[in-house]
Structures are given as C-alpha cells and as structure tokens.
Design a protein around this nucleic acid. Structure first.
Lengths: 130, 130
DNA sequence: GTCTATTACTTACTAAAAGATACTGAGAGT
DNA sequence: ACTCTCAGTATCTTTTAGTAAGTAATAGAC
C-alpha cells in the first residue's frame, strides 16, 4: 500500500511485480519505443522513414516495436493499397500523451550527456576468467 | 542535422546511432533503472531495501543496474564497515535531475494502464494460410 | 514476358542480455 | 563451533536483441 514512493495513482503500482503496469513500463521504458514515439510526435510516418530516423534499428526490431505500440493503442497502423506498399504509423491521443514524458527523457539525455562522461570506462567486475 | 524531431540540445542527438548518448538512453530507458531511481528519490537506501521495493528483481540485475548508475555518476555507493555489511545508495544531483522525467513516465503508466487494456490479445498478423 | 526496382516486412540463426537460484564472505551473537 | 544477516557473486537456463537474407506485390523498363 505505502510501498510506492511516487504516491498513489489509480490503483496500480509499478513497484508490484504482478501488476500489469509492470509490462507496460517494460514496453515504454525502452530505447526503440522512446525513439519511435518521439519520431511520430512530428506527425504520421511511414515504416521506411521511421527506420531511417532511428538509425541503427533493424527492420525486425522496428516492426516488433511498432506492433506492440499498436496493440497498446498508442499508435495506429494504416495500410494504403498503393503500388509499392505504403504503411503509415501515427500516434493516437494516448500515444501523444505518453510522448511528453518520453521526450523529456530524451532531452535530458542530450542535455546532460557531458556530465556523465566516464560511463564507458569498463571496470571489470569479477568474471573475466576463472 | 535536422533529423531530430525534439529540436537541438547541445550537440548530441539520440537519433544518431553512433552518438554516445544512445547508450545513455539505453541505460535510462530501462525498467529497473526507472524503478531504482524512483525508489532513491525518497532518500538513501540499502541494497536490501531497494531489492524489496523493486519486487521481482534478481540480486544480479539489481547489482548491475546500481553499478551502471554509479559509473554514470547518477548514484553514489557508500559502504559502512559495520557488522553485517551495510551499503547505501543515494542519488547524486545529476541523479535527482533525471528522476523527474522517469517519475513522470512511471506516473503515466499507472494512470493510463486502464486505457491500454487489450494489449495482450495476440492478433495473428497476415500469413496463417494463403 | 522477363528483369529490375521499391516498400514493408518475415524467417532463420546467432550473440547477448535477462532471469532464477544457489552460494560466498565477514564478522557478531549464542 | 554453529548460525544469522547483508550484500552481493557464480553458475546455469531462458528470453530477447541483433544480423543477414529472403518474401510478396506490383509497376515500369526492355
């Protein structure tokens, strides 16, 4: 009951292992999700355009990410029966509302990266060889 | 240059695959990170207390998460040479500043979970039979 | 009619990460 | 000597991410 340091919201608690919101947090607290939703903030985009924007994403991961977002009603997928296939992804109202926290996270990363330098210094913690 | 829909911040861009801020985004856009930092918002905590709060986390994942946060200067780790070992984790100023976007994400999840129902309905997509 | 091009994905495979569980070390107390 | 706590490790299994190649549909060039 009082285990949630963020206070009570509705009747869900991300700190409870069994709560379904745990899996929603897993979906959203994710690199590709944060980038994809951020890209779609600007308006509807096609698969290829999102793929280009999120440099480094594989078509597999992008399709998986977008399908999950669609299943969660954060994104809509519209197929236009045009010549070479044409598919557009667009944020729903719900998706637009989650875009804000995700944007603030991306912005934080870009603005504070320089204060985090030294994070790539690999300190070997124990199991290199036996 | 103009590929970032969130606008320009400093000279980093999470949408560039090679940018070091990509790996920082990976660290932060993560379930356990979001929960651990949220827990530490209330003040310093011991390993065992964090483990209890983040129900379901394995000691391995928690230790890994906390070490990474320490390496990124988001968290400090203090060992008290007391009888049964006593280790405290605490947010740095930098850590406190990232706690805000992460909190808003957790809060969003708890408040909007009910609007996302139906996300586990497995829809077979396209090629079951020809 | 075959050949090439485009778009939006799958499929199959491998590497890496996450997760589960058991165990360790340093004392302090009994 | 044995047990207990705390803060992790070590080891093993499972799941996920990543890589590379292939597929389907159709349009237009030759």
């Amino acid at each position: 009951m009082e285990a949630c340091p963020t206070g009570k919201h509705d009747h869900h608690n991300v700190y409870e292992a069994g709560c379904p919101c745990r899996s929603l947090l897993e979906l959203l607290a994710n690199k590709w999700t944060a980038l994809a939703i951020g890209g779609l903030e600007a308006g509807p985009m096609r698969f290829g355009a999102i793929k280009k924007l999120l440099s480094g994403v594989s078509p597999k991961m992008l399709a998986q990410t977008l399908h999950r977002l669609e299943d969660s009603d954060l994104v809509t997928r519209t197929v236009y029966a045009s010549v070479p296939a044409h598919v557009e992804y667009e944020l729903t109202d719900l998706g637009r509302s989650v875009a804000e926290p995700l944007r603030s996270l991306r912005v934080w990363v870009e603005r504070h990266l320089d204060e985090v330098v030294g994070h790539d210094r690999e300190r070997d913690l124990s199991l290199l060889e036996s």
